[in-house]
Design a protein around this nucleic acid. Structure first.
Length: 578
DNA sequence: GCCGTTTTCGGCCCGACTGTTTTCAGTCG
């Protein structure tokens, strides 16, 4: 059982307790779920090396939950969860993914209308049945229908960050099957698209039967659509709840490159590439590049593109969106690389809503090879997080000085920057006084309230904040949450112009649910000469590993190293702030 | 059910917003 799966059951247990009206346990289970998600290593391994006792070392996990996790690892379930689930046997994660629907409502919906899943909810809402329930009315029905609509627009797609770890894990397992030589992730996952519809895997094996056999019998498999020698298609229970389809193709070594090219796509990109092949008197398919019946190239993608007179475009930009022309002229951009960031600039700790201490975050950042990390806890107007006021910020600065000193003595190269994630208030002012902001190394600011202002008001609000001489970085500039919350209304052209004028850096928030800025906005910013940073918005040590999703986002927008300033050494980076 | 500059027992994040109310429950962040 993976960390994600364990966390999901713990979170659901918390929600079930919430329905029961039990006090405090819901928070305890949710915290434990967060702790598990935020781990840098597998719960399974922790248990193996130290038993249930070692599990209590996980943030939020005590004796009780450690025992539950032990049962989960051994039997895949625990009685507490089963007992609760029996009372309200509904698809909680699916229902609560609709904005405005929470545990209490789910309970009432089940008890009064026998609503178990999204389809039931949609039917009952459309029939106007919700308005007769306590504390529900027509407006709520409209809100729910809107929420369902929004979710459908997402097309049942999953966030990249949900699926990539799963795909990698499956890849590792397939590599262990006898006879398997190579496994590659293809499709939209390889292109690192923002959202993923299904999971494509490609393998070379001397023994194709064994791989596809293993693939169709994995524990995640809910349904087998097809199971042949070279191709298997299944439906998986995804960690996110709901299913995702996964395809495996086993191909011969000689044509692996052609298959990889073909199954990486995008479709539009492939159509254009095939047209070029035809022009040159070739034919391109998933088995190779042919002249008549003779194979010209097939073993690697590079040799295929080369024979077509093109450079090989990085998968992230294969969208038939200018990359083919660039590849033909050998003018592909030199995209920012996955290892080129030197620091993280948005990190929350247990001073507010993060799960780990400053030092724990710093130690993990050190392991990741960072040169610097900015601690940017929330500020006071975000009450739920215990946001810092001026006094608490000053106290935290002193704490950071202490830890920096300690790091220096240890001869550690990493430097902690003092920062904050300041709130932009309704009138565009910031919720921390300028004289305290002046003492920070990095000031980030973000909108965390009043998401529904008009476009003009919201833009004016943010523009005013950006004019603050202390505001260095505008965090998650559009506020969207993938598949869940639309971006607030804001005029990005004006924001980008203002960034240029005021020297404000725009953030590419790498958190898999945010990925904010979006690729199209990154393109706009790049073209306007606005500088950006990529950071994780980490709330736990595990989340510090999210940088790659932000880098993927930037690569899809053709961003180069020079566009992203946390590729710079510390001194140079600091000189580029206000 | 967790945890300890908070006391190993007794606390546990809390304000804004919404839609339903007739004084507030539920949800969100």
């Amino acid at each position: 059982m993976t960390n994600q799966e364990i966390a999901k059951i713990l979170r659901e247990t918390g929600e079930l307790y919430e329905m029961e009206g039990v006090l405090f346990k819901p928070r305890a289970y949710e915290k434990a779920a967060l702790g598990v998600e935020g781990l840098g290593r597998a719960v399974k391994d922790i248990y193996k090396s130290g038993g249930a006792k070692a599990l209590t070392g996980i943030t939020g996990v005590g004796k009780g939950i450690a025992y539950h996790i032990e049962l989960l690892l051994k039997k895949g379930r625990f009685p507490e969860y089963e007992r609760l689930k029996k009372k309200i046997p509904v698809n909680i994660s699916e229902l609560s993914s609709i904005e405005g629907v929470g545990p209490k409502m789910i309970k009432v919906l089940y008890q009064k209308l026998k609503i178990k899943n999204l389809a039931d909810l949609e039917r009952a809402t459309k029939a106007g049945k919700l308005r007769y329930l306590p504390r529900m009315g027509e407006k709520l029905e409209q809100k729910i229908l809107k929420g369902i609509e929004f979710k459908k627009e997402g097309g049942g797609r999953f966030a990249l960050g949900e699926i990539l770890p799963l795909a990698r894990e499956i890849k590792e397992r397939l590599l262990k099957v006898k006879g398997v030589e190579t496994v590659e992730i293809a499709g939209s996952l390889r292109r690192r698209q923002e959202t993923i519809g299904d999971l494509d895997l490609l393998a070379i094996s001397e023994n194709p039967d064994a791989v596809s056999d293993y693939f169709t019998k994995m524990h995640e498999v809910a349904h087998v659509y097809a199971h042949g020698d070279t191709k298997a298609m299944v439906r998986l229970n995804s960690p996110a709840g709901g299913g995702i389809d996964a395809d495996l193709r086993v191909v011969p070594r000689e044509s692996f490159g052609a298959a990889l090219q073909y199954f990486t796509g995008s479709k539009d990109h492939n159509i254009e590439v095939r047209k070029i092949a035809i022009k040159k008197g070739y034919k391109l398919n998933e088995y190779g590049l042919y002249r008549g019946k003779k194979i010209i190239a097939a073993r690697s993608e590079e040799e295929i593109y080369e024979k077509l007179g093109m450079a090989t475009p990085p998968p992230e930009i294969r969208l038939n969106d200018g990359e083919i022309e660039a590849a033909l002229k050998d003018k592909l951009p030199k995209l920012i690389g996955y290892g080129e960031l030197r620091g993280d600039l948005q990190v929350q700790t247990d001073w507010t809503d993060g799960a780990n201490s400053i030092e724990e975050m710093v130690r993990e950042a050190e392991k990741l090879g960072h040169e610097y990390i900015a601690i940017t806890d929330h500020t006071k107007s975000l009450a739920m997080t215990g946001g810092a006021d001026e006094k608490k910020l000053l106290k935290q600065m002193a704490e950071i000085d202490k830890i920096n000193h300690k790091l220096k003595i240890e001869n550690c190269k990493l430097k902690i920057l003092k920062g904050a994630e300041v709130n932009i208030l309704k009138d565009g002012s910031l919720d921390i006084k300028n004289e305290v902001l002046a003492k920070l190394d990095v000031v980030g600011a973000a909108v965390h309230s009043l998401f529904n202002l008009s476009k003009a008001e919201q833009t004016k609000r943010i523009v005013k904040a950006m004019a603050n001489p202390h505001l260095d970085i505008l965090f998650h500039p559009t506020g969207r949450i993938i598949n869940r919350r639309k971006p607030y209304e804001v005029d990005m052209e004006t924001i980008i112009k203002t960034a240029k004028r005021t020297g404000t850096i725009l953030e590419i928030d790498a958190h898999p649910w945010r990925l904010d800025l979006k690729d199209e906005h990154i393109k706009m910013a790049r073209e306007a000469g606005v500088k950006m940073v990529i950071d994780t918005d980490a709330h736990s040590v595990g989340e510090l590993h999210y940088l790659e999703y932000g880098i993927a986002q930037a690569r899809r927008a053709w961003a180069e190293k020079k566009d992203i300033i946390n590729t710079k050494p510390l001194k140079e980076f600091l000189s580029m702030l206000k």
